[in-house]
Amino acid sequence: RTAFSSEQLARLKREFNENRYLTERRRQQLSSELGLNEAQIKIWFQNKRA
């Protein structure tokens, strides 16, 4: 289980509010910017949509 920092969570929530689905390219960008792997971001979005 991933423990996200408050900064990472704030960024993910802001991104989710703008778009509930990420393109592969956007997921790669977020992964690089947040220091998370793409799978972690993908799962976070899946869980948030559920």
Rank of each mutant, 00 (worst) to 15 (best):
R1C: 15
R1G: 14
R1Y: 15
R1A: 14
R1S: 15
R1Q: 15
R1W: 13
T2Y: 14
T2D: 14
T2I: 09
T2C: 14
T2W: 14
T2M: 07
T2L: 13
T2G: 13
T2S: 07
A3E: 15
A3T: 10
A3S: 13
A3C: 09
A3N: 12
A3M: 08
A3Y: 14
A3I: 11
F4Q: 01
F4K: 02
F4P: 04
F4N: 02
F4D: 02
F4T: 03
S5R: 04
S5L: 04
S5D: 05
S5W: 04
S5I: 03
S5T: 15
S6K: 13
S6D: 13
S6P: 10
S6T: 12
S6R: 11
S6E: 13
S6F: 11
E7H: 08
E7Y: 10
E7V: 07
E7I: 08
E7C: 07
E7N: 06
E7F: 09
Q8D: 05
Q8S: 04
Q8K: 03
Q8I: 13
Q8G: 01
Q8F: 03
Q8N: 04
Q8M: 05
L9A: 04
L9M: 07
L9F: 04
L9K: 05
L9T: 05
L9N: 05
L9I: 12
A10T: 07
A10L: 10
A10W: 06
A10D: 13
A10N: 11
A10G: 05
R11Q: 06
R11V: 11
R11F: 06
R11L: 07
R11N: 04
R11P: 02
R11W: 05
R11C: 06
L12D: 01
L12C: 04
L12S: 00
L12E: 01
L12Y: 01
L12K: 01
L12M: 04
K13V: 15
K13I: 15
K13L: 15
K13W: 14
K13P: 00
R14L: 13
R14W: 08
R14I: 09
R14C: 11
E15Q: 03
E15K: 01
E15W: 02
E15T: 02
E15C: 03
F16T: 02
F16H: 03
F16V: 02
F16Y: 10
N17Q: 12
N17W: 06
N17L: 09
N17R: 11
N17G: 08
N17S: 12
E18V: 07
E18Y: 07
E18C: 09
E18I: 10
E18S: 08
E18R: 11
E18A: 09
N19H: 09
N19M: 04
N19D: 08
N19F: 05
N19K: 05
N19A: 04
N19V: 04
N19G: 05
R20H: 10
R20I: 11
R20S: 12
R20K: 09
R20T: 05
R20A: 12
R20D: 05
R20C: 08
Y21S: 05
Y21L: 07
Y21K: 06
Y21G: 04
Y21R: 06
Y21F: 12
Y21P: 05
L22A: 03
L22I: 07
L22N: 02
L22H: 01
L22D: 10
L22C: 05
T23N: 09
T23H: 04
E24G: 09
E24P: 15
E24I: 11
E24N: 11
E24L: 10
E24S: 14
E24C: 07
R25L: 12
R25V: 14
R25D: 12
R25G: 14
R25N: 11
R26F: 04
R26L: 06
R26A: 07
R27L: 15
R27E: 09
R27F: 11
R27N: 09
R27D: 01
R27Q: 13
R27A: 15
R27M: 15
R27Y: 12
R27P: 02
Q28A: 11
Q28E: 09
Q29G: 04
Q29T: 08
Q29S: 08
Q29D: 07
Q29C: 08
L30N: 00
L30G: 00
L30W: 01
L30K: 00
L30E: 00
L30M: 04
L30Q: 02
L30H: 00
L30V: 03
L30Y: 01
S31I: 05
S31W: 03
S31N: 02
S31Y: 03
S31H: 02
S31C: 08
S32H: 10
S32Q: 13
S32C: 11
S32Y: 12
S32E: 14
S32T: 12
E33G: 01
E33N: 03
E33F: 03
E33W: 04
E33L: 05
L34I: 08
L34C: 00
L34H: 01
L34G: 00
L34Y: 02
L34D: 01
L34F: 02
G35R: 05
G35V: 03
G35M: 07
G35I: 03
G35Q: 07
G35L: 05
G35Y: 03
G35P: 00
G35E: 06
G35H: 07
G35T: 03
L36K: 02
L36H: 01
L36A: 04
L36M: 07
L36D: 01
L36G: 00
N37Q: 12
N37C: 07
N37P: 15
N37V: 06
N37A: 13
N37F: 06
E38H: 04
E38Y: 04
E38G: 07
E38L: 05
E38R: 04
E38M: 06
A39M: 14
A39L: 14
A39E: 15
A39G: 10
A39K: 12
A39I: 12
A39H: 13
A39C: 13
A39D: 15
A39P: 04
Q40L: 13
Q40P: 02
Q40A: 13
Q40I: 14
Q40C: 10
Q40R: 06
Q40D: 15
Q40Y: 09
I41E: 01
I41A: 00
I41C: 03
I41R: 00
I41Q: 01
I41G: 01
K42Y: 09
K42D: 15
K42S: 14
K42I: 14
K42L: 15
I43F: 10
I43Y: 12
W44L: 02
W44Q: 00
W44C: 03
W44P: 00
W44T: 00
W44H: 01
W44R: 00
F45R: 01
F45N: 00
F45Y: 04
F45H: 01
Q46C: 10
Q46A: 13
Q46E: 14
Q46I: 12
Q46L: 09
Q46T: 07
Q46Y: 09
Q46N: 10
N47V: 10
N47E: 13
N47P: 02
N47Q: 13
N47T: 11
K48L: 07
K48N: 10
K48Y: 13
K48E: 15
K48M: 15
R49P: 04
R49D: 07
R49H: 08
R49N: 13
R49Q: 10
R49A: 09
A50P: 05
A50V: 09
A50M: 12
A50N: 12
A50E: 11
A50W: 09
